[in-house]
Write a protein that binds this DNA or RNA. Structure first.
Lengths: 118, 118
DNA sequence: TTGACTGGTAGGGAAACGCCTACCTATTGT
DNA sequence: ACAATAGGTAGGCGTTTCCCTACCAGTCAA
């Protein structure tokens, strides 16, 4: 394991861990659908005290999924989708599996881990 | 929230939670690259006791990401990628964000949908 | 049938998570 | 200067996660 590899693995871990919580996924959805917003506007959508949401925002920030920009006494959070592109890259090698399984060819692939084009 | 919606949300939660752990992601990779395998063959790749891996397999099973098939005293685990397709569906609405940001158009998007009250 | 082998379950413990209240700093308006 | 507003931090507390050892059940071979 190289140093760069370990760093990337840690980043991957932070992104997947950030996405593991429904509140945080909902924050991402709100930022995607409504654009950049201050903390209070986000907090209005949750049955949760503001400090708890602040901690969720911290997790998202450290995963690189949101960025904050100060504007007066407000902090405007905006979506940073780049780490999600890496999640899609992570998914890509699995794609042929779900496509084949949806076509009912899973059994074939289970027996032939090689490419089973007939 | 409908009953079906709640069920889907719970399923989504289980999948994201299952992916939040590096060991479980590695199990998926092994099943993808090497095909179906018994538990011991998987366990050989981890610095971890077998019961711990069994618990990881249980989490993956309950998320629908692996299936087991008994063969004598062995249990052959195989990848079930369908839930990953749902993760890709979840990612899809974010795609334009990372594409736009990669093209340097993030600033434009940051200003346009801005309904943040000052 | 006995013994070895595969793998799941039970239970415990340390650490992380996710929530809370209380408190702090920084900024803005009067 | 003072009060109000925005939002982060500290610390506590119950729950969950993730590992362990010990144990149990099913299967195969001698």
């Amino acid at each position: 394991m190289t140093a760069a590899g370990a760093r990337e693995a840690a980043a991957e871990d932070r992104v997947f861990a950030a996405l593991a919580n429904a509140t945080r996924r909902e924050v991402l959805r709100l930022l995607r659908e409504r654009g950049p917003q201050p903390v209070q506007a986000l907090a209005d959508h949750f049955d949760m005290r503001r400090p708890s949401l602040s901690e969720h925002l911290k997790v998202l920030r450290e995963a690189g999924l949101v960025a904050e920009q100060r504007s007066g006494r407000q902090r405007i959070y905006r979506l940073r989708a780049a780490p999600l592109a890496e999640v899609q890259d992570w998914l890509h090698p699995y794609e042929r599996f779900w496509r084949d399984q949806l076509k009912g060819l899973g059994d074939l692939l289970d027996r032939l881990p090689d490419d089973g084009q007939s």
